[in-house]
Design a protein around this nucleic acid. Structure first.
Lengths: 150, 150
DNA sequence: AGCGGATAGTTTGATATAAAACGAATGCGC
DNA sequence: GCGCATTCGTTTTATATCAAACTATCCGCT
């Protein structure tokens, strides 16, 4: 009747399952980034959102949600908040009055610059951990999983 | 004034950032597994929980939450549900009356077998996508990120 | 024109998750 | 024994997320 301590947990096949280790790695990376970006008074999910808007001025919410891998309904409260705080501008398009054109305000661009520095530091840590030489192949596999998994 | 369609989104450096691609890959893998395990009437997060209990009978909730990479408070409602539905047995220990000993019931073991089949299929898909030869190195990197990221 | 299907975004309802505060129990150091 | 820091699990509070239903709008076809 073994009493299980944290250090001696038996992971069995989980140790060699990509699905599980992918989740654990993502979770750890996410938390590390959250710690870094905490100081900017910004939550971790915001960075990619702001970056994609900055990179694609006039993007619609649906396109943004797809690019970001989240459901479009998740985006509504996030954008409400970013608009309310003056980081994002949301304007109806002339031709199609269903869609919004999203752009960064000057404040939004400043905030993005801050977050960019956190993200750069974070990703340098990851690169160092993986080893520069293996990064391209690793990224290739991640992209393949993201796009081709059934 | 370019109107941005989903297919032509510019990802900029995100394309080559491990943190971002890790999230996208995990998200896609998670959704694929959710589709597979859907038929078992079970949500995706449950599998690792049941597996770890089955593999480590008598494990405490705190040890389980750590092994699973989730906060212990997340576990309370999950275990309440699994206990209520008769898949997990929760008993106080004699020596330390703060901790629970978690074990699978026979029904829990049956359910785990079902989910195991889904998970196996899912992970075979991932292995095929990655390419058998590259799986060990890929796993090694994921484990390294999970354990060593600051 | 006008109908019907498709699309953009929001709302609603359900689940998952973390963080902090909490109560109970433990055990170390004296 | 006693006191206090620690640990275990729960509760509370705040987000994040998805899926499905909904509204408004658009567009193709007749």
């Amino acid at each position: 009747m073994p009493s299980v301590a944290a250090e001696e947990v038996d992971f069995g096949v989980l140790e060699n399952w990509v699905g599980f280790q992918l989740r654990m790695a993502q979770s750890a990376s996410f938390q590390a980034f959250a710690r870094l970006s905490h100081q900017s008074g910004m939550r971790p999910g915001r960075f990619a959102t702001l970056y994609l808007i900055g990179r694609n001025p006039g993007i619609s919410q649906t396109a943004l949600s797809r690019a970001n891998g989240k459901d479009k309904s998740s985006l509504t409260p996030v954008l409400n908040d970013l608009v309310r705080r003056g980081f994002v501008h949301r304007a109806r398009t002339r031709n199609d009055r269903r869609t919004y054109r999203l752009t960064l305000t000057p404040d939004g661009r400043k905030l993005l610059d801050q977050l960019n520095r956190c993200a750069q530091r974070h990703d340098r840590n990851l690169d160092r951990l993986i080893g520069r030489r293996d990064v391209p192949r690793f990224l290739e596999i991640l992209r393949k999983i993201a796009t081709e998994i059934a």
